Simulated scan of single mutants.
Amino acid sequence: MSKIKIAVVGASGYSGEELLRLLLRHDSCEISVITSRQNAGAKVGDFFPRFTGSKLVFSAPDTEEIAGKSDVVFLALPHGLAAEFAVPLLKKGLKVIDLSADFRLKDTVVYKKYYKEDHPAPALLKDAVYGLPERYRSEIKKAKLIACPGCYPTSIILPLSPLLENKLISPENIVVNSLSGVSGAGRKVDLAYIFPECNESMRAYAVTGHRHLPEIEQELGAAASCDIKINFVPHLIPVNRGINSTIVTNVTKDFSKEKLEAAYKKAYSNEKFVRVLGYGKQPDTKYVTMSNYCDIGFTFDEHTGKLIVNSCIDNLTKGASGQAIQCMNIIFGLDESAGLL
């Protein structure tokens, strides 16, 4: 079987680098195009020394070149810019896997509220499939446009959805505290993210109105079959990569430890990349970094009557590029773990 030809648009960012790391070891793929306006003409090994020896060279993004050399395109671009490439590439018949936020939200009014601009391609929203394989695998198989979930949302939707679907926790008064490594902010020069500011520092930010909030609420609402509002408090911590989310919920009258374990078993016992650690066990980011795993632990607090759920992912892998490749594997009928284990 001939290899799948891949284009990575925006290959010089952290998500782009992670895509290259994983795709270069994928036996069924051949990277044909990598783009970066600022680094056009440069060898990838000169920009990312880990790829020294690779023949790949950055080029300026050109939809005609990309379409002529690719079967599937990964868009590792900022929101707003990704749609500019998605529209013409889809018209040329390519599969598009978008790592930005452009196609995650179904409501254009909500998009404008949180991203402060009109949606760049509203006509495509009906065709976009939310790229969380554990929730939308059958839809992903047939999709032409994948909207890859955000990193924080992945760490929250995976542990909560089975519990909401089975009505074991209340959809009201959910509180999420998430800790993220600095790479989650992207590859940019910004005072808040330079070493002296981040080192020896842990701080909350965007404690109301974070851009991932409506995405989380949209998907939790779908699981619960009702509208949901949550408190979501992200934190920046001095590590390169990884997310740890601690979620506090109220249980329902139907809750029991046995039903909770059964709900997780039904949802994830056959999933390669979700590991339910069991009651009273807490996940640790150091066991998921550089991997596509999401680890989940949970404990019922007898003192307060609340359920505390914890999850850990690598924000660049399961929270971005690894999950994108997992979706690609599904679309092309490959082993879902190809290139990821």
Results as ranks from 00 to 15, higher is better:
171 P>M: 10
171 P>G: 07
171 P>T: 08
172 E>V: 15
173 N>L: 11
173 N>H: 12
173 N>S: 14
173 N>P: 14
174 I>W: 08
174 I>D: 11
174 I>V: 09
175 V>D: 15
175 V>Q: 09
175 V>S: 08
175 V>G: 07
176 V>K: 01
176 V>R: 00
177 N>P: 08
177 N>R: 13
177 N>F: 13
177 N>Q: 10
178 S>G: 08
179 L>M: 14
179 L>Y: 12
179 L>Q: 13
179 L>W: 06
179 L>G: 09
180 S>P: 10
180 S>H: 01
180 S>M: 09
181 G>E: 00
181 G>L: 00
182 V>P: 00
183 S>V: 08
183 S>Q: 07
183 S>M: 03
184 G>W: 00
184 G>N: 05
184 G>F: 02
184 G>M: 06
184 G>P: 12
185 A>V: 02
185 A>G: 05
185 A>D: 04
186 G>L: 04
186 G>P: 03
186 G>Q: 00
186 G>I: 06
186 G>F: 01
187 R>P: 09
187 R>I: 00
188 K>C: 11
189 V>Y: 15
189 V>H: 10
189 V>K: 05
189 V>C: 05
190 D>Q: 09
190 D>K: 12
192 A>K: 10
192 A>T: 02
193 Y>M: 05
194 I>N: 03
194 I>C: 05
194 I>G: 04
196 P>S: 02
198 C>V: 15
198 C>R: 12
198 C>M: 15
198 C>H: 12
198 C>K: 13
199 N>A: 15
199 N>M: 11
200 E>I: 08
200 E>L: 07
202 M>R: 12
203 R>N: 07
203 R>H: 03
204 A>W: 05
206 A>C: 09
207 V>Y: 07
207 V>G: 03
207 V>T: 09
208 T>W: 13
208 T>V: 06
208 T>G: 05
209 G>D: 01
210 H>M: 04
210 H>V: 10
210 H>L: 08
211 R>Y: 11
211 R>E: 14
212 H>W: 07
213 L>I: 06
213 L>P: 07
213 L>Y: 05
214 P>C: 01
214 P>M: 01
214 P>S: 02
214 P>F: 04
215 E>Q: 08
216 I>T: 03
216 I>M: 03
217 E>L: 04
217 E>K: 01
217 E>H: 01
218 Q>M: 05
220 L>A: 09
220 L>C: 05
220 L>T: 09
220 L>H: 11
220 L>S: 06
221 G>M: 02
221 G>N: 03
222 A>D: 13
222 A>I: 10
222 A>K: 10
224 A>L: 04
224 A>C: 04
225 S>I: 07
225 S>W: 06
225 S>A: 13
226 C>I: 11
226 C>H: 10
226 C>Y: 08
227 D>W: 09
227 D>M: 15
227 D>L: 13
228 I>W: 08
228 I>R: 11
229 K>F: 13
229 K>M: 14
229 K>A: 15
229 K>G: 10
229 K>Y: 13
229 K>N: 14
230 I>L: 09
230 I>R: 02
230 I>Y: 10
230 I>C: 04
231 N>I: 15
231 N>G: 14
232 F>T: 02
232 F>G: 06
233 V>C: 05
233 V>N: 06
233 V>H: 08
233 V>T: 14
233 V>Y: 07
234 P>E: 00
235 H>Q: 11
235 H>D: 12
236 L>V: 12
